[in-house]
Nucleic acid binder design. Structure first.
Lengths: 345, 345
DNA sequence: ATGAAAGCGCTAACAG
DNA sequence: CTGTTAGCGCTTTCAT
């Protein structure tokens, strides 16, 4: 345990402010904490002193008495590369950061490499180093997270995770986008454009997000009395999208539209379509999902379902903040998606 | 200022441990801080008590007296997307995180969106909330960072930044990779393989890293008595690489190897080479730089110069830790690069 | 509306 | 080697 206390020159203390303003420390504390019971004169005097001294409260001292650390952990049980490489996470973190900027809390990044023992992270979280935790991951929040939820306010972000606690009650707090509704939106748009033979390329069948999107596609179709037989499965990658499109085209030559569960797959599908001489969107319309780089990078800009990812981060942080403030926020927040119209449909 | 102190059930205090172990608080403190002057018996007794109570020291209290926050800021004056999207940063952060895991310090992520006012971040850093700061960015660390360096131990990471302080002395601490040496390695490899007409595709001429790599290429050539006339400039993008390769081929039909300053550009060059019917590596050998996704993604795996990026993060953190411990670490650490042999050369 | 006093949990002299 | 005594900088009753 190294205690590298680098002597900070002269950070002013509350006491000095009090002296300069000619009041007691308690009074200074009151104006700092915006107590209503301070006379205007004293108030301004103290504020002047604070400004002059460039005073900033000592967080540690405050934490000590407030019994709160005023910091929350951002737990990332994900390989650093996956985490950083994914624009989805970038947006979430941006949102979290933005929301927290407007609060007194700071973010403690907790890279919980999935490989190495989680024990340290557990100890950290449970050790009272943070007042709450935000967990973002594509993975399901296994046992590890289930347990911390009992000792610490936690809100999960990202695709749906573990179902419900062993206790049977809806577990923890989380925010997610409404994948199903997003898929409905995308598919409806296709229907409204007059398409009738609408297929889908799904994501892996063991991922909730993929399942939900397929379900949404089906919902919209049923709602319009259309057939939901044109289905091919992919795994969210570009190549799988190309393959699935081939399959779809072979089996359903009448196909006039495809709702694809990810932009990457849609991009692959576009290649296949081009190879086979189908004009997009004239012959076959394509709607993607994610509004990722793929949506704008290719030759044909993708009409796609966008997720309010940054907003998710904001809501996550906000939910945790409310929890910490003793309020009772919603346990699950499902954010709406938005259809971005571009050239492919 | 919301003080959402959620009543933590019963986190044991040092005092309780002392009572259980039948010693004074000071003694408990001593074993916690591994003081050498504690009798074995007492030591084990205290440890037992700690274990039984599942005691974890209160960071705030400790910070208060130690006059250190035991946390360091990771400042990212970069757009969140660029930051997260870049595998380079992912590795650095992983390294930082790893090194910090082995210390008592925690990481405070400070997303300093370049757009919005830096004032808040400045205040945060200068407000004694952290004991030191790590700054990672591709940008030069302008005025903002110059100023914080005077009030707080700071170590910069990433490509070289601002030259030296107004004071004239070498400014701050930083760690970088030795771009020049890396280029020498890559070029030497080409020379050792028997290539003689070795060209280069450089990065933008206003970036230190690009300049250094070009210089290294030149160094190696001179060292071998070879001509350094085969040069074309790119801007680190794939397209620019393709263009530059065309230029090179047109002007120097005898070209038998290219040292390319980035994998992305090398990838572009590969396309050009293929289009023109040159076999790689038989006719023209190609060495890239970065060991990025481009190096393995294309049809011909790239031989490339890899940077020990994660190591950089480790060294950054380590340097700051030493600084905080009152030691005198090196002001600049240049990490060596490594040549990764694949198919292109 | 304000001040005095007590104490958050811990470490650090200073005695013994 | 170990206990006692003071605080670190702040908030917070409790008086006034």
């Amino acid at each position: 345990m190294t205690h590298g206390a680098v002597a900070v020159p002269g950070r002013p203390t509350l006491e000095e402010v009090a002296r300069l303003a000619g009041v007691s420390r308690a009074t200074v504390s009151r104006v700092i904490n915006a107590s209503p019971k301070v006379s205007p004169e004293v108030q301004t005097a103290v504020e002047a002193a604070i400004a002059e001294l460039n005073y900033v409260p000592n967080r540690a001292a405050r934490s000590l008495v407030a019994r709160a650390t005023m910091s929350i952990a951002l737990v990332v049980p994900e390989d650093a590369h996956r985490f950083f490489g994914d624009p989805y996470f970038a947006d979430i973190v941006q949102g979290i950061s933005d929301r927290l900027d407007a609060s007194d809390y700071v973010l403690n990044l907790q890279l919980a490499h999935p490989s190495s023992p989680t024990e340290k992270t557990r100890r950290y979280l449970l050790g009272g180093n943070v007042d709450g935790a935000l967990v973002v991951s594509h993975h399901s929040g296994d046992h590890f997270l289930a347990s911390i939820g009992e000792a610490l306010p936690v809100v999960f972000g990202g695709r749906p995770m573990h179902a419900r606690g062993a206790s049977g009650r809806p577990t923890d707090y989380y925010v997610d986008v409404d994948n199903r509704l997003g898929a409905v939106q995308g598919t409806r748009y296709l229907i409204d454009s007059g398409r009738r033979a609408i297929g889908t390329i799904t994501g892996p069948q063991d991922m909730p997000a993929a399942l939900d999107r397929a379900a949404g596609w089906r919902d919209a179709l049923h709602e319009a009395g259309l057939s939901d037989e044109r289905v091919a499965h992919g795994d969210f990658t570009e190549e799988s999208g190309a393959r699935a499109a081939t399959e779809l085209l072979d089996r359903h030559p009448d196909l006039d539209a495809i709702f694809v569960a990810s932009d990457a797959m849609a991009s692959g599908a576009l290649s296949t379509l081009a190879d086979r001489g189908h004009n997009v969107p004239r012959d076959v319309a394509v709607v993607g999902y994610d509004n990722s780089r793929y949506a704008t990078r290719g030759p044909i800009p993708l009409t796609t379902v966008a997720q309010p990812t940054k907003e998710m981060g904001i809501v996550m942080a906000d939910t945790l903040l409310r929890l910490l403030a003793g309020e009772k926020p919603k346990r699950v927040s499902l954010l709406p998606t938005e259809l971005i119209r571009r050239a492919s449909a």
